[in-house]
């Protein structure tokens, strides 16, 4: 009883010392609570490249269209001051493929009070053959770019795609996947564990084949003329599989 009172007193003193010390260090700009802005911008010529591969662990990955003939990658956001030099943005071309990767010097990071980073990759209007993005927790947003084949995967991040059309191979563990397309022209494959899957298209498909599987989730298809997994005869194959997530397919409103 007495011991625990002494320990409590000691703990209380430590907390008071910590508060005073941290306030002083914060005012000096050196505490663990000091946040700094990070902005790294890199670009690479796209003339010889046919595909892009993006690797990011956390934050958000935005894919947007840009003018010109250069791929522009910008890593920006905020992080605690001591980690500011820890981040690197690597952009290089390897055998016709542009590799963009966020790397960190420190492998072991136990104390990171605040980090919010966003990688924005601008892709020129010239159509590329393949876009590959792989993340751990980062969300992936692809907006209005022209790529023939999209290979997107994330462990826990959401995947949002808003493009005209394309061939899609998407994998997610817990993140939701939402595709908003102009038309379903090529094959689409989306596999999630718990994430919901939503596919919307402006143009009503004339022909479509589907393989929809949801173990405990609900499946809802609102395309007109959809019957027994088909619309018309032939058409692209849409394979949507989720363990516990819901699956929705229908016209874009």
């Amino acid at each position: 009883m007495r011991n625990s009172r002494n320990i409590l007193r000691f703990a209380f003193v430590l907390i008071i010392v910590a508060i005073i010390g941290n306030v002083a260090m914060y005012l000096m700009g050196n505490s663990a609570f000091n946040i700094a802005e990070l902005k790294i911008k890199k670009s690479i010529n796209v003339e010889q490249a046919t595909g892009i591969s993006i690797l990011a662990d956390s934050g958000t990955v935005n894919i947007v269209p840009v003018k010109g003939d250069e791929i522009q990658a910008t890593l920006q956001g905020e992080t605690t001051k001591k980690w500011i030099k820890d981040y690197h943005l690597n952009v290089k071309e390897v055998k016709g493929e542009i590799n963009i990767e966020i790397t960190q010097d420190s492998r072991l990071r136990l104390f990171d009070l605040y980090t919010n980073l966003q990688l924005t990759v601008g892709i020129p209007a010239a159509k590329m053959s393949q876009l590959q993005v792989k993340t751990d927790t980062a969300n992936i947003k692809v907006d209005s770019v022209h790529v023939t084949e999209y290979r997107l995967s994330s462990d826990t991040g959401d995947i949002d795609v808003n493009v005209t059309d394309g061939l899609f191979d998407i994998k997610s563990d817990t993140g939701d996947v939402a595709l908003a397309l102009e038309q379903i022209k090529y094959e689409i494959s989306v596999v999630t564990d718990t994430g919901d899957i939503s596919i919307e298209a402006v143009q009503e498909p004339e022909a479509l084949r589907t393989k929809l599987e949801a173990d405990s989730g609900k499946i809802n298809v609102t395309f007109p003329h959809y019957k027994d997994g088909y619309i018309g005869i032939g058409g692209p194959m849409v394979k949507l599989i989720s363990d516990t997530g819901d699956i929705n397919m229908g016209n874009k409103k």
């Binding site: 703990a11 010392v17 005073i20 941290n22 104390f111």
Partner: peptide, 9 residues
């Protein structure tokens, strides 16, 4: 000082 606080808590 952050660590001191962590130990206290």
């Amino acid at each position: 000082f952050l660590m001191v606080g962590c130990v206290g808590i």
